Simulated assay, not measured.
Amino acid sequence: MSTPCKPQACAIQACLTKTGFDESKCTQVIDQLYECCGKFYQDKGTDARTPCCPIPSLLKLKLEQRNKEPLDARLV
């Protein structure tokens, strides 16, 4: 059985490796992971777990932060 959102999590790791761990160049793949995780929790419920996704409360916080301001690793 496949792990939910694993391709997206692996894409982040590949991007980080390719860019010398510059998160600001990987925001698109990070957003794709968060989108996948949001759908996972919507479909399976907030008690569901996958090692590729932050827990629902942390995912919600990260999404709120990204929607509030153009949070980019360059700013952190």
Rank of each mutant, 00 (worst) to 15 (best):
M1V: 12
S2D: 10
S2M: 08
T3G: 07
P4H: 06
P4E: 04
P4L: 05
C5H: 01
K6G: 03
P7R: 03
P7V: 05
Q8F: 02
Q8R: 02
A9Q: 10
A9N: 08
C10E: 14
C10T: 15
A11F: 03
A11G: 08
A11D: 12
I12M: 06
Q13P: 07
Q13T: 15
A14K: 14
A14N: 15
C15D: 08
C15S: 09
K18P: 07
T19D: 11
T19E: 13
T19W: 09
T19P: 11
G20Q: 05
D22N: 13
S24A: 12
S24Q: 12
C26T: 13
C26F: 13
T27L: 08
Q28P: 06
Q28V: 14
Q28C: 10
V29F: 06
L33W: 04
Y34R: 07
Y34P: 00
Y34C: 00
C37W: 01
C37I: 08
G38W: 05
K39A: 00
K39D: 00
K39V: 00
F40W: 02
Q42Y: 06
D43I: 12
D43F: 10
D43A: 13
D43N: 14
D43C: 07
K44Q: 14
G45I: 01
G45A: 05
G45F: 01
T46G: 00
D47F: 03
D47I: 04
D47G: 08
D47P: 01
A48R: 06
R49P: 00
R49N: 04
T50H: 03
P51L: 03
P51N: 10
C52H: 02
C53N: 03
C53S: 05
C53L: 07
P54Q: 10
I55P: 12
P56I: 01
S57R: 12
S57F: 08
L58A: 13
L58S: 09
L59T: 10
L59V: 10
L59D: 07
L59Y: 09
K60V: 00
K60G: 00
L61G: 00
K62E: 12
K62A: 15
K62P: 05
L63A: 06
E64P: 02
E64A: 11
Q65I: 15
N67W: 01
N67R: 09
E69N: 05
E69R: 02
E69C: 07
P70F: 13
P70K: 15
L71C: 02
R74G: 07
L75Q: 13
V76M: 02
V76E: 06
